[in-house]
Design a protein around this nucleic acid. Structure first.
Lengths: 143, 143
DNA sequence: AAAGTGAATGCAAAAGCTTCTCATCTATTG
DNA sequence: CAATAGATGAGAAGCTTTTGCATTCACTTT
């Protein structure tokens, strides 16, 4: 379980690391900020400092266990690395985040990078918009 | 000239606003941070506070005169709004920023948003990579 | 051209997110 | 189970960005 992943990353298996990884795996919201994680830990009765949350998330990112994204709000959000690259579309009204993959876009990016003489290391595509479906939470709540 | 654009934006024509707009128009680097702008103003002998730079850039953004981007480094960069949407590819070695437009990617984004039930308000695509061409500054300087 | 008024500015302080410092504590190894 | 390298918590510090407030300025009205 979590222990192995942490050990594989070359990190000691400690309570904060296990709890944070568990939380990322179980959280209904895949995309969380360090503050979110910290608050969830507090709510779960864990006594883990915010500095540790940042440290652990950074280590997990370096180890490839999680990915870090910079959405428009300014702060960073983290998500479990599924191994499959994907991009994001975010509702500017309710903040809901959906993931998508589009091979056409991926391919075009490779072509563009090549044309411009770049070797891609990574990329980030975020679409911002409004949910139109009435099944979106923000429609039900009316915010 | 600049005065008209500022007036059109519903803002008073003041020295800081004119100088900042001039600077954005003349700067060899299109993508600059607030700090960059501040330092360039200082270097040009202008006595304009950093807070004013932030305020003016924010107002320019609200007025559609400039665009704000969040690249990976953490801070925001601003660029003059050319009216033509474009995306960015950034060299992770030298920081050089290139702009590109790809109608195929734009189209796919519209289709994806529609499929997922979103009405796009904006989007941001940034590709990170390494320059391969020897004509890139970072190769010449060897950093 | 001078006065009046609301907006704009500069400075310093504060805020928000993230990192660092350091003394204490803990997981792992032998 | 002792030894040790690494991890943690709390608070300080760092950075970018925003805010509060007294002063100054742009634009309108005399």
């Amino acid at each position: 379980m979590e222990d192995q992943e942490i050990r594989k990353a070359g990190l000691k298996v400690t309570v904060p690391r296990v709890k944070i990884l568990e939380l990322l795996e179980k959280s209904p919201e895949r995309h969380v900020s360090a503050e979110d994680v910290y608050k969830m830990l507090l709510a779960a009765g864990e006594d883990i400092g915010l500095a540790t949350v940042y440290r652990v998330l950074t280590q997990f990112e370096a180890a490839g266990l999680v990915e870090k994204h910079h959405f428009e709000d300014g702060y960073s959000v983290f998500e479990l690395n599924t191994g499959k690259h994907h991009d994001h579309i975010i509702c500017v009204t309710c903040g809901r985040v959906e993931e998508f993959v589009d091979e056409t876009i991926e391919k075009r990016q490779r072509i563009i990078a090549e044309e411009l003489g770049f070797q891609i290391s990574e990329h980030e595509l975020v679409i911002y918009g409004k949910c139109l479906d009435k099944n979106c939470d923000c429609k039900k709540k009316g915010d």
